[in-house]
């Protein structure tokens, strides 16, 4: 009888210790949350998640670079010939029709970061060339020569007014 008593007691004791360990462990894990969260972007950084860009000052054929979330975004004012040339082809390595890459054909908006290893390509002649490893993009930002694997990315944006876009959101 005394044996069963001690057995029951030790069971109860083990249960209590297990419950306490779980509760304490959960608390210790919860304490990690604020520490980890503090390394995420702070609210003032998040406030810069969108960028407004004014298009009125960009002449036909001109490229403006604006910073969005710390990354360069190319805004390229294309002339009708360039638009026609781009709409005629689907690009090279990563085929995609030009219509899918623009909201209005005269304005090309792409993130200016080479999809190979993250350098910023330069506007040279028609299209862009990345000097880090020689990738080339056409006037729709599509890759036409490697080593870049993909076309320049199109950020989410929408036209706030006829000559103003908001980068960072795809609609109001």
């Amino acid at each position: 009888m005394s044996e069963s008593d001690t057995l029951g007691d030790s069971k109860r004791r083990n249960f209590l210790i297990k419950v306490t360990t779980v509760v304490g462990g959960a608390g210790a894990a919860a304490v990690c949350v604020p520490f980890v969260a503090s390394m995420n972007p702070s609210s003032d950084v998040l406030a810069k998640a969108t960028t407004e860009a004014d298009l009125s000052g960009i002449p036909v054929g001109g490229v403006h670079t604006v910073a969005w979330q710390g990354k360069p975004v190319f805004i390229f004012h294309r002339d009708p010939e360039e638009i026609k040339a781009m709409e005629a082809s689907d690009g090279g390595f990563d085929p995609e029709p030009d219509q899918q890459r623009v909201k209005r054909p005269e304005w090309l908006v792409v993130i200016g970061i080479c999809t190979h290893l993250g350098c910023v390509p330069n506007k040279e002649g028609p299209g862009w060339t990345c000097h880090c490893h020689g990738s080339q993009y056409d006037d729709s930002g599509r890759v036409v020569r490697g080593p870049a694997p993909r076309n320049l990315a199109v950020p989410p944006y929408y036209f706030v007014a006829d000559n103003k876009i908001l980068i960072g959101k795809s609609k109001a």
Binding site: V33, A37, S38, S42, S43, D44
Partner: peptide, 8 residues
């Protein structure tokens, strides 16, 4: 601004 910065 920092997430939980006030707490830390």
């Amino acid at each position: 601004d920092v997430n939980y910065g006030w707490l830390l």
